[in-house]
Amino acid sequence: MTFDISVGGDGTIRLAGRLDSNQVDMTRTVLEKVKTNVTVDFAELRYISSAGLGLLLGTQKRLIDTGHKIEIVNMTPHIRDIFTIAGFDFIFDIK
């Protein structure tokens, strides 16, 4: 399973495939450019480990500092479970 990250015309970031420790640098490059509210679409994301969670956490903290935040949409049940176990379900806006 490969990984892909893309940014749509409306600024939505789409993650697809497997976000593991090998893919964190590519993802960080995209997330570092985010300066305002952003939607991250998880519809095609099949796997995330603590490496990806840590990256999202750092980005959320940086954005909250400036009055902005990440909104996550279309999360699959397995990844929802991971967010719940990590206690991330109430520090991210999940729709």
Partner: peptide, 8 residues
């Protein structure tokens, strides 16, 4: 983020 992976 430290310790999150082992927690999971």
């Amino acid at each position: 983020p430290g310790g999150l992976g082992i927690h999971l």
